[in-house]
Design a protein around this nucleic acid. Structure first.
Length: 140
RNA sequence: UCUAUCAGCCGGGUUAUCGGGUAUUACGCAAGUAGUAUCAGGAAAGUCCGGACAGCAAAGGGCAACACACCGGUUAAUGGCCGGUUUUGUUAUGGUUGGUGGUAACACUAACUAUGGCGGAAAGAAAGUGCCACAGAAAAUUACCACCCCCAACUUGUUGGGGGCCAGGGUGAAAACGUGAGGUAAGAGCUCACGGGUUUUUGCAGUAAUGCAUUAAUUGGGUAAACCUUGUGUGCUGUAAUGCCACGUAUAUCAGCGUUUGAGGGCGGCUCGUUCAACCCCCAACUAGUUGGGGGGCGCUGAAGGGUAGGCAGCAAGAUUGUAACAGUAAUGUUGCAGCCAGAUAAAUGAUAACCUCUCCCAAUUUUUUGGGAUGACAGAAUCCGGCUUACAGGCUGAUAGAUUUU
RNA sequence: GUAGAUAUGGAUUAGUGGUUAAAUCAGUGGGAUGUCUCCCCACCAACGCCGGUUCGAAUCCGGUUAUCUACC
């Protein structure tokens, strides 16, 4: 019997610090699943136990979307898709004792449909879970 | 009723499930959980103007630069807005005159004029300088051709010299006020009559721009979004301002200059004037203070580098919003009543579904209704206001004009 | 958020308010050559857009669109 899950995405789940983001861009690894580019890193900073969480950030290029409305729209859709699916990855992180930082960039140049984004997010999460597993194996 | 133009207003709604920002209350050591309230626009946009607010320690004058420019009002302020004036474009209606058709009534058409609607423009070209391609004799007061007169010569209708001089020389976007008469050797505002323009005197109306009448002078091409002249106005930097706290580094390095005969800085860019500005130690000489030298300290400028890039305030009650009355032609103002309405910072205000609603299409159907499908504009606060400009599916209201129908 | 610059053929640049907007490369056609280049000749093709000032605008003025740059 499964306990009812909550799909939240609060302030603490967001990447905010400029310092951390710079570190992510310098040291992080990346792969891309069109129309996304994903940058990730296992957080090894000493954080208080309360903040051991999966942290995410979303971004859209100003080059491809000139209007602020369009950028807002894409980011909102991305956030919604991530919110509904990230729980599995979170559990994986807990199980392996890792803290992942993920940065999602939308690289397409057309306004996407919600369904497309949702499907792509499924594959992204699968890939990230796989990466998580591999990392724990090599550490052992 | 439809169409067009202008002005103003609105610019999707309800429910369910899942989520976010801010404030606050309760529980909890804390993370957090739960409850309540609230959460984008008419342009939030462009950043084209004007302010508020903050910093630049502390008066200014002149010049330059930039902006504006009919008059009055409005406002915190403006280059905005409102009302008026002149002029111009367009449109409608009426009138006068001419032409064409018609026996006539009248119709069509052109010019002028009056009134109304909808726009545009606005200091000075009579202070000076420059420019005006091509064409044209000439592009601004000068010549040339032609015309006329006089003199000389001889091949007797040409040549040469002197004078008159802007009426003709048809081009151009633009040609030296227009028409008629007189006048003359030929002509010319040279003179006269009528008419037009510009400046001006006086009177009347108006706060004024200006209008009407009148007096005198004059007939001066355009361009100031060419330089310029006149008048008026304007400090610069912007909330990444600014103040405070925390963390961290290098109270370090190099070069130049200065320490009262003053480096350098402020007062807008320049200049004048004015003002601020570091006043310590050692040594030597001589009149217990001054002079000279050296080193350091201190100050200023530049170079190369090191560190941080977190938090709080600023920051949400105001030239505030809605509404009513009053004043005003209006912009706008005054007063009363009611309300509190986003404050993020890798940046909340969302996603999905259903129904309703708007518009369009298809089918059935007598208007109407039913069923199915598609679609829902422009666009997202970042210190805050007042304007301007630009984008905008669709809808509503009013005014004006036109067309059609009915009476 | 603030400030500034630029826009001319397919590309890179010229261009005092005055003919049909100039040049180089590229493209097309022809000549030359046994053939291809080089060379010669001709053609094609542009003032970002909308208004205004002016007799006349790529140029001057205003608005607008796009691109680029700098600034703690």
């Amino acid at each position: 019997m499964e306990q009812q899950q909550r799909y939240t995405l609060g302030k603490n789940n967001k990447l905010k610090s400029t310092k951390v983001i710079e570190q992510l861009f310098k040291q992080g690894k990346s792969f891309s699943i069109f129309p996304f580019r994903i940058i990730y890193l296992f957080n090894e900073n000493e954080l208080p136990e309360s903040e051991n969480k999966l942290q995410t950030a979303f971004s859209v290029s100003k080059k491809y979307f000139k209007k602020a409305t369009d950028r807002n729209r894409v980011k909102r859709l991305m956030r919604e898709a991530w919110r509904l699916q990230k729980n599995r990855l979170e559990e994986k992180n807990k199980a392996t004792g890792k803290n992942m930082m993920v940065f999602l960039i939308y690289t397409g140049n057309e306004l996407p449909e919600y369904d497309v984004i949702f499907e792509k997010t499924v594959t992204i999460i699968k890939r990230l879970i796989k990466i998580c597993d591999e990392a724990t194996v090599t550490n052992m």
